[in-house]
Structures are given as C-alpha cells and as structure tokens.
Nucleic acid binder design. Structure first.
Lengths: 245, 245
DNA sequence: CCTTTAAGAGTCACCTTGACTATAAAGGAG
DNA sequence: CTCCTTTATAGTCAAGGTGACTCTTAAAGG
C-alpha cells in the first residue's frame, strides 16, 4: 500500500468508499459427504438466495477477526469454539461489479470443522444450514466461485499438509481420517496403503494410549489417534490419477 | 460478502471508509541472487523509506488490474509486458493499524519476471530499483512481512508447479532453470538429477529445434528449452533437506 | 596445451508407492 | 450358533522415483 496519490491533507471521504467484507467457506465431512455451511439472505440483493456466511469488517477489526465474529453470530458456535477454529485466508475478490449496490471487496476464508453442531440461523441470517457441496448451485454474488476455489484449495492442501485432521474430532480412527481424503477428493483410497503412509509419516498422528479401541461401527474396532505435531507432509500424499487444479 | 448490516437506504458514506490498495512483491533472479523491486517513498508516512510498489485500487478496477497499472507506472515496463506477466494473488493484509493515517486494506500480489530492465522510477515513486532479497530490511508499513510471505510462497510453489520458467526468458538452458531453484531455495542441486527430473516430467520444458546450442558462458554450450504446456509437477520436485514453511 | 567450468550420459542402491493377499474382530441374518 | 459382511491391521512384491556418484564432452582462459 502507499499514499502516493494522496496529498498531505487527504480527506478519506473524497473518494468513493470501498466496503470490505469477510466471507467464509466452512466445510465439514458429515454423513459421508462434503458439506458447506450456508445462510439464507433476508434482504436485497439476492433476498431468498443462499450465500456463504460473512459480513462487513468493522473499523477496529482485521478481516480474520470479522470472519470469526460473523461465524459465531450466524451459526451459534460458541466464541471459544470459533476462536480455536482452523481458519485460513483463501483469497480476495475485488471485481468492481461483484456487488450491484456499491464497491465491495471480499476477503474469503476457509474453515474446516469436525462433527459440527446444527447451525442456529442466528445473527442477521434468515436461516442457516449445512448443505452437501455437490448440490450447491446458484449462490448469491460470486459465492459459487468462492466455494469452488475453497474446495480446490482444501483438496490441494490435503496433499502436502496435515490439514485433514482438522476435519476430525480430537480422537479419531484412521478410517475416519481416510474418509476425509476420500470425501474431499472424491476417490477411493487403498486402506492398507493409506494406513502405512499416515503411520510412517513422523508427527502426522499419534496413537492414543488408554482404551486402545473404539466400538460403534460394523467391522473390527479401530485404534484411536490424535493429531500429531507435524503440519506438513514430506513427501506428500498425492491424489491418485488426476492432476490437482 | 453480505449486506445484512445495511438497511435499504444504505449510505455508503455513513461508515468510516476503507481504502484498498494493491501491492506487489516483484521478484527476479539476477546476478545469481534473488532480487526484489522496491520504490522509495517520497511522502509521509515513511518518507524516504523503501517500500513495495503499489497503490490505490481505483473505482473501476479490480485489485489485479490496479496492480498491473501501478507496476507499469512505477517501473517503466511496457503495458504489453505487464499484461503478459505472471501475477498471482498472495494474500490480503487487513490489520487495523497497519497504516497510521486511516484504514487501509492491502491486497498483495507476487510477480515473477525474467531478466528485467532497469526500473525507471517513474510514476509517483521517488526512485525505483532492484535490491537483493537478503539485504532488504526496514521496509515501510508491514512490507517486510509481505515480502517474506511472498518468498515463502514462491519457494513452495516451485516444488509442485512449473512456475520456475516464469523467472526465465522465453528460451533458456537447464542450467538457468536450475539456478532459479537454487537461488530461491538457497541450496545447491545435483545437476544430473535435476536434469533428469525436468526432462522426464511431461510438459515441463520442450527442446528448441533450430540452433541446438547457445554460447556465452564458460563451459560446454547448453541446449535451449522453452516452457512446456504443463503447469503442475507430478510428482513434485521437493526441496532437499529442510521442510517447506 | 593444460586447467577450469559446465553440460550431458549413465549407474546403482534405497525408499516410496500401488496393487494385492491374508488374518482378525466386530455386527447382522438365518 | 453359524455364516456372511464389514472394517481394521499385517504383510508381500514389483515398479518407479530419487539421491549420490562417476565419466565424458565441449567450450573458455591462461
């Protein structure tokens, strides 16, 4: 940034102002599907349309702080939950005509949540709910594109980071972790190979000591693991077949 | 983005306005070093300090359009050159106090240029010049951090994309391409192994037919190559030793 | 003419990976 | 209770990619 166009006695109101918003693509894996948190708009433009949650960045906030606040307001997640959430900046959308009313620049974030509570539709949103990613179309503004970019980014990050654990509860089985990859990538992975890769990568997961097994599903009970300290995968866990992007 | 806080007859001037700028971390490899394009500020704040080139996003522009315009104005690169430049959005910096005067949100971009012309210091910049990356400190605003983020991002992208060719002229030798990796990563790579990797990756580079060799340096003349059609590297070309990020 | 420098060809062992087989431990159906 | 299905977990094996090296070729410089 720079003020080279701004004379000493610059009047901030002399220019057409820009509004800055923070929007969130909140993703989760539920019921074997990738799901997105959406809100229904109550006002024009796009009244009645579904949109990504988000809202204006207020004067004392950073974009990320605004994103966390809006998420808490609109979904009923507790402040503590939102504060500990894995939130990552996706990119900024600044096309001049993306909002019909005025100039709005949107800083988009991606959030990954495990086993989410039902959203309450609070705040200013008419209602809020989880929707399966592949059934979502026709969102307000350019939110279809933001959502697609978020999906692509998350899919790519799974390859070379330990991000997948952010989709899982604190303790999880390797089957659950594998489901995350399969759901986001839309492919099936070989169980033994996936297991070998995860367990031989130092710091990806760590075994839980106490009760060595968990029951609940159909097959043989699985051991529980916690997220390890590592954040990146070397070498990466590449998608089979297709190219990323 | 959303207008949930905005009543029907919303007055854009009722809020403290945000200014939006586009700043660029323009990188090149010259004289065996990674270099950055900087401008000297002529006005307060930070008058006399060096900063990344950039400026305000004007009402009819997207942030990327503003970035290209500012780059052309301040460095003397032709409009055609700037239009064809590899420009990638880095991230957006929105901390409330990053500009002492008013609320300024900066969308940062990374640009990679091959064999750059001397900047002219045109536009509003007092002067402009290339500086070696590792000697740069004390830039205006939070530009030190933006620059560090750009370096990290570029280093990471070299691993899994064909981005390195963007640092090279249209026709280049494998030695030049290898220098890009070595300079950005700060490591030495094994010549034969690098060659094997690049040549066996489909679409990374394509051999130039005509005059099969180029002279100029000291050793055996090298064959020339052009960038191939591929954009991603599968499998990636990982940095030796250290972790990314 | 010899040294230096870098390109380019080739070798070899190791590690990772993909494909696959086998066994163990649960639930459900008959 | 037994068979069948499902899932976890333990292995095996071959192909491919990579790191570490060696060797040859072709220029420039002294």
């Amino acid at each position: 940034m720079s003020d080279r166009r701004v004379p000493e006695g610059y009047d901030p109101y002399a220019f057409e102002p820009f509004a800055v918003t923070a929007d969130l693509a909140v993703l989760t894996v539920r019921e074997e599907r990738l799901q997105v948190l959406l809100v229904e708009r109550g006002q024009e433009p796009y009244a009645g349309s579904w949109a990504l949650p988000g809202g204006f960045v207020l004067p004392p906030e950073s974009a990320e702080q605004a994103a966390r606040r809006e998420l808490a307001e609109e979904t009923g997640l507790s402040e503590a939950t939102v504060a500990g959430l894995h939130l990552e900046q996706l990119r900024t959308y600044s096309e001049p005509d993306r909002d019909p009313r005025m100039r709005v620049v949107s800083v988009a974030f991606t959030a990954l949540v495990p086993d989410p509570p039902e959203p309450r539709g609070g705040g200013d949103a008419a209602q809020a709910r989880w929707m399966p990613y592949d059934t979502v179309r026709g969102l307000a503004f350019d939110h279809d594109r933001i959502l697609a970019d978020a999906h692509e980014r998350v899919g790519a990050k799974l390859e070379y980071s330990c991000l997948a654990t952010a989709f899982c509860p604190p303790e999880f089985t390797l089957g659950e972790l594998r489901h995350v990859y399969e759901t986001v990538w839309g492919v099936e992975l070989d169980r033994p190979n996936f297991r070998r890769k995860v367990l031989t990568t130092p710091g990806f997961v760590q075994a839980v000591e106490g009760p060595p097994r968990l029951t609940g599903g159909r097959g043989k009970p699985a051991a529980l693991y916690r997220a390890g300290g590592a954040t990146t995968l070397h070498p990466p866990l590449l998608r089979p077949e297709g190219r990323p992007a």
